[in-house]
Design a protein around this nucleic acid. Structure first.
Lengths: 242, 242
DNA sequence: GCGTCAAGTAATGTGCACATTATGTCCGAC
DNA sequence: GTCGGACATAATGTGCACATTACTTGACGC
């Protein structure tokens, strides 16, 4: 016979796959909002108490974040927010350059009407966000532009890879300059790239994208001195309830 | 006071970070040797018994492998060897093309004498392995060639990314055609690419690499019907002891 | 006064027991 | 004979208790 239940069916949900995602998202949000300074230590008991979940769930989320490159783990020491050197950052943008150069080249070669429509719609949204001064929206749109380009290639591997690189890039913007309006130099640069793509000018689009990315690297030079705050403060208003 | 030890210092090693790596490597080796067919289910209790480790350690290794793309996890179902579709494979090679095209272009532009030396040494090794008929060595060298190119660029992010893509590519060679001599069409193709790089012919090197990668995709067309074996047989001779 | 070392404390790491879920099997009804 | 459902079994998922390690505080010796 089957083992008799002891605690008589606790009210916990069945799948609970959403709980992992919630914890993961909460930590990710805190980083994206610039609440965690580079070098900060993410203690499991504290996070478990703040997010109202078990320590094992926090551990799992931290492991995932470490594996994705968001955090750095030191054995028997803990998990930390990485303080990326300028060289690491430059490397990320180098890889992005290679991929995104290929992306705009391909899109310039074979841009369908659907692609053109989605690109133009995105630029329109960016301009609207700029006019209305919606900082958060523009920040998100600026990043999504690069994701959109990758997705329009129809290659899932490509999208996934670039998404990882981009999140790590934009994280540094959040950490370095949360007060900045947007992570990309301006919507008009995106507009120029789109125009070149839709004109079939692959070379020009490629060059514009490369200089655009170079501009982003330059923006990262000045980094504020990163004030340290407690985890309780960092996660104020952020929960795993979602 | 501190909690008194109960079992009086078991003989387990201190760090035990090597144990995780050993389990991870054992599973990875089994896949690389073509012992696990696509669709095979990796059961935690079986692996724990075969590899002589705890189930939690197996779980951790499986989670890592899933996150790296080697395995696929279905909630409450288990972990499986993915049966990659031809489209997924084509996507991987597409991304590889973008990255490796940029790599050879860069190396052609700024190839130092050290780079030249290492490239020539690698080609020499490949030729020696071909002459002596050492299948395993040649197989490994063929893959490492692409890794070497990435590493010579001096970009850690690039190396790491390409390594992930390449292992997934070569895994399919192992799964699809373990009896094949090498995963690349031949060492002479690698030699031609190196020659073009060292001559500073970026365009030619780029075109050679692209056709080389296209050739690899073509090799994958014929896939044998994947006979199913038990995990005990698959891991015969493979242990976590290393 | 300063460096060194030892004990306490709180973190991380891990094995275990239990709950939950899916799968396979058998029996019965139609 | 086949379809449907309930039960048994074995897997996965998770919280908990404990071991181990690192850091901190304090005292002692030089």
């Amino acid at each position: 016979m089957a083992r008799p239940p002891r605690k008589a069916a606790s009210r916990r949900r069945k799948g609970d796959v959403a709980a992992d995602e919630a914890v993961y998202g909460a930590i990710r949000r805190a980083m994206h909002m610039g609440r965690l300074s580079p070098g900060a230590k993410l203690q499991e008991p504290v996070l478990a108490r703040v997010l109202k979940v078990s320590r094992e769930r926090v551990r799992k989320a931290l492991h995932r974040l470490v594996h994705e490159g968001w955090l750095t783990a030191v054995p028997n020491r803990g998990t930390f927010v990485p303080a990326l050197s300028v060289e690491e950052m430059r490397n990320i943008y180098d890889v992005r350059s290679m991929l995104e150069e290929g992306i705009v080249r391909r899109l310039s070669r074979e841009a369908s009407s659907i692609v053109a429509q989605r690109l133009r719609a995105h630029i329109t949204e960016e301009r609207a966000a700029t006019r209305s001064g919606d900082r958060g929206r523009l920040f998100a749109l600026s990043g999504e532009f690069h994701i959109l380009l990758a997705e329009l290639c129809g290659n899932d591997e490509l999208s996934k890879l670039l998404r990882g690189l981009l999140t790590r890039s934009t994280m540094h913007f959040s950490l370095a300059a949360p007060e900045r309006l947007h992570n990309c130099a301006g919507p008009h640069e995106h507009g120029d790239i789109v125009a070149a793509i839709l004109d079939g000018k692959g070379e020009r689009a490629s060059k514009l994208m490369l200089s655009h990315l170079r501009g982003l690297v330059a923006l990262q030079s000045a980094r504020p001195p990163a004030k340290a705050v407690s985890l309780e403060e960092a996660f104020r208003g952020i929960s795993a309830a979602r």
